[in-house]
C-alpha cells in the first residue's frame, strides 16, 4: 500500500504488532509516538502472520545518513590509527573501517587496501555523535558473506538513494531481469547511492600494465549498463525496454 504523506501527519499503524521503522519514520523518545519526518510516498507492509509491520517513507533525497546494518559501497580515503577512512558520499564525513573489520584479520594479518579502492561493507555503528563505523563481516556467520574489497575492474556510479533502495530490496523489480538479456554482470549496490558494476571481465590489464584488447568491449558494456540503470531512475516502467535499447544501441 502506498500513499502520499507529509511530515507530522498520523501514520496508519496497527495495534499489537511489532513495528519496524524505516527511513522517514521517527519515534519520539519521550512520548514514544511514531511520526513521519519526511514527505514522500508512504509504504506500510504487514507480514502474512500479522505480527510485524514495516513503515517507511520513500523520498527522493540525495544526502545519505548511515543507519545500522545498511549495505554501503565506500571508497578508501586514507588511514587513521588502526582503521581506514572511508568516504560514503562526497562532502560527508568519512566513516571508519577498522583493520579488524575483515574476516580472519588479526593484529599481524592485516588487510592491505590502497587509497581509492572500493569496499562493500555493512554499517556496524551508527551513533552520529561519534565516528560511524563499517565492517566487512557478515555478523551472523562471522565470514565474508559477500562483503569485502571491490576490485578495480568494475565501475562505480551514483544513483539517488531511493532508487538504490528499490534495486537492493525490491525482489520483484524488473530492471536487472531486463539487463541480463543484454549481458552478464556482477553488481554491488550500496544504500548510500553508489553502485559498483562489472560486465564480463571489466577493465583488465596484462603484466606490462597494458589494457587487454578484449577488455575495451567489456568496459563499454559496463558503462552502457551503468547508463541504463542511471536512466531508469527517471522513467516509467513502460519505457524501460526503450531505455535499454538506447543504452546498448552502439554495441553489437
Amino acid at each position: 500500500m502506498t500513499s502520499k504523506i507529509y511530515p507530522g501527519e498520523t501514520l496508519p499503524l496497527q495495534k499489537d504488532v511489532n513495528i519496524t521503522l524505516g527511513p522517514g519514520a521517527y519515534k519520539n523518545p519521550i512520548t514514544q509516538e511514531i511520526i513521519p519526518v519526511s514527505a514522500g510516498l508512504l509504504h506500510c507492509k504487514t507480514n502474512k502472520k500479522q505480527t510485524n509491520q514495516l513503515v517507511y517513507v520513500e523520498t527522493k533525497s540525495k544526502r545519505y545518513i548511515p543507519k545500522l546494518n545498511d549495505f554501503v559501497v565506500g571508497v578508501v580515503n586514507g588511514t587513521l590509527g588502526e582503521s581506514y577512512k572511508v568516504s560514503l558520499q562526497e562532502g560527508s564525513n568519512n566513516v571508519l573501517l577498522s583493520f579488524m573489520g575483515f574476516p580472519n584479520a588479526t593484529k599481524k594479518n592485516r588487510p592491505n587496501l590502497k587509497n581509492g579502492q572500493a569496499v562493500y561493507a555493512r554499517v556496524s555503528q551508527d551513533v552520529s555523535e561519534i565516528d560511524i563505523e563499517i565492517e566487512c563481516i557478515d555478523p551472523t556467520t562471522g565470514k565474508e558473506g559477500g562483503f569485502g574489497v571491490l576490485d578495480e575492474s568494475g565501475f562505480i556510479f551514483e544513483v539517488s538513494l531511493n532508487f538504490a533502495n528499490e534495486l537492493l530490496f525490491n525482489s520483484s523489480s524488473i530492471y536487472f531481469e531486463k539487463l541480463s538479456e543484454k549481458c552478464k554482470f556482477e553488481i554491488a549496490i550500496g544504500l548510500n547511492g553508489k553502485i559498483w558494476i562489472k560486465c564480463g571481465e571489466g577493465m583488465k590489464y596484462d603484466d606490462n600494465n597494458e589494457l587487454l584488447p578484449s577488455s575495451l568491449n567489456d568496459m563499454k558494456y559496463t558503462v552502457a549498463a551503468a547508463n541504463y540503470l542511471k536512466n531508469c531512475q527517471f522513467i516509467s516502467k513502460s519505457q524501460i525496454d526503450q531505455s535499454l535499447k538506447d543504452s546498448f544501441k552502439h554495441l553489437s
Partner: peptide, 17 residues
C-alpha cells in the same frame, strides 16, 4: 587507471559525447 581515462584515450567519453 580509471574507466574515464581509458575511454578518453580511445577517443570516447562515458557520457556518450
Amino acid at each position: 587507471m580509471s574507466y574515464h581515462k581509458e575511454f578518453i584515450k580511445n577517443g570516447e567519453r562515458l557520457n556518450g559525447r
